[in-house]
């Protein structure tokens, strides 16, 4: 029995484990005994970017939101939801842009709930009021709010919109009041806020969130353009050490601290050969992950199933993906893909 994803509802592609060398050894042993499949019949997890609209303009946004793209219609999104149900996908994360910026956001969420697909979502909190928070509680198993600083001065600078901190904090409070059990916070570390992480930990404890996660910033999209905002390797190492030590001291109340490693996600994909997850962009393109800028299908050309069967399910074995992704040993190597990240390669 192999645990594929320690947390089904992890709303991004980061692998949260410190022991992935052990994990790889285990994978090799399973492969020696032919116990692993060559591929999966459908994705286990889908990151579904339903929009590129966003009221904020964060320094580091990996898909450069807000941007104008030909977004899919409500009917097309509902069709995707049906296919997700049919394929028995185990977890979906509705993402963006800011997913709630789409007027049909809850319509899509409701359909996924009817289909019994475990769904989570990400928000910057900008649009959340009391009624909306109740809808989040109804439709989502977990919600992740982005919080990039312990105060408005830092957070608003990174997210480049005044008032965004106050709204993010208000959203967390409204989600709590609405009874959402699993509220996680993600913290994107830039040179402006990385030293304030311990204060964000305190704030999250006060707010009663379940987990606070961070990781080295992936240098793609706007983080590629604003690469001067990316912390150094030493700064990230210090942050990682802080998290390790804090965890050793024991949990911070009910708050769990998580350190992600985007490179381990790539290494896992290359090592396994088969894919577990899929990303759907706001335009309907299908790809392996936000970290690998290769398009392998479109929802309007054969749907998820065809994209999966024609390439994605073993996408890590594609010669070009394998060759280019194998060169990545740290987030700073992802930077060399920057120009490609902004203009995807169709395979």
């Amino acid at each position: 029995m192999l645990e594929l994803m320690p947390d089904v509802f992890s709303p991004d592609f980061t692998v949260y484990r410190d022991d992935y060398e052990d994990f790889f050894t285990y994978i090799d042993e399973l492969n020696q005994h032919n116990l692993l499949p060559k591929y999966f019949t459908a994705p286990v997890f889908i990151l579904w970017e339903i929009t590129s609209k966003c009221p904020l303009n964060c320094l580091y946004c990996y898909n450069n939101s807000p941007k104008k793209v030909d977004e899919l219609t409500t009917e097309q999104l509902l069709q995707i939801a049906e296919e997700i149900g049919k394929l028995k996908v185990f977890a979906v994360c509705l993402s963006g842009g800011e997913p709630s910026a789409r007027p049909d956001f809850f319509t899509i969420a409701e359909r996924l709930l009817d289909l019994k697909i475990p769904t989570s979502t990400i928000t910057n909190g900008w649009n959340i009021d009391s009624d909306k928070a109740k809808n989040y509680a109804k439709y989502f198993q977990s919600v992740q709010v982005s919080l990039d600083g312990p105060n408005a001065e830092i957070h608003d600078k990174v997210r480049r919109r005044e008032g965004s901190f106050d709204r993010a904090v208000r959203a967390i409070k409204l989600f709590k009041e609405s009874g959402i059990d699993r509220i996680s916070v993600s913290f994107a570390a830039t040179v402006h806020n990385i030293d304030s992480f311990p204060s964000v930990v305190e704030l999250c404890q006060d707010l009663g969130v379940s987990s606070l996660r961070t990781q080295p910033l992936v240098i793609i999209g706007r983080a590629g353009i604003n690469h001067q905002e990316v912390p150094t390797k030493e700064q990230f190492e210090k942050l990682r050490e802080y998290i390790r030590n804090t965890k050793k001291e024991g949990q911070k109340g009910c708050l769990e601290l998580e350190w992600g490693d985007p490179v381990s996600h790539i290494r896992t994909g290359l090592r396994l050969g088969f894919s577990l997850s899929m990303r759907i962009t706001a335009e309907g393109f299908l790809s392996l992950t936000p970290y690998a800028p290769y398009i392998m299908g479109h929802v309007l050309k054969g749907g998820i199933q065809q994209g999966w069967e024609k390439g994605l399910r073993t996408g890590w074995l594609h010669p070009r993906v394998k060759e280019e992704m194998s060169k990545i040993s740290s987030i700073y190597d992802i930077q060399y893909l920057d120009d490609k990240a902004l203009s995807y390669v169709h395979l």
Partner: peptide, 15 residues
């Protein structure tokens, strides 16, 4: 078989 284990909220793969 792949399945969600509700107790741990994890996805498991069975040989």
């Amino acid at each position: 078989i792949t399945l969600i284990v509700q107790k741990t909220m994890s996805v498991q793969l069975l040989n």
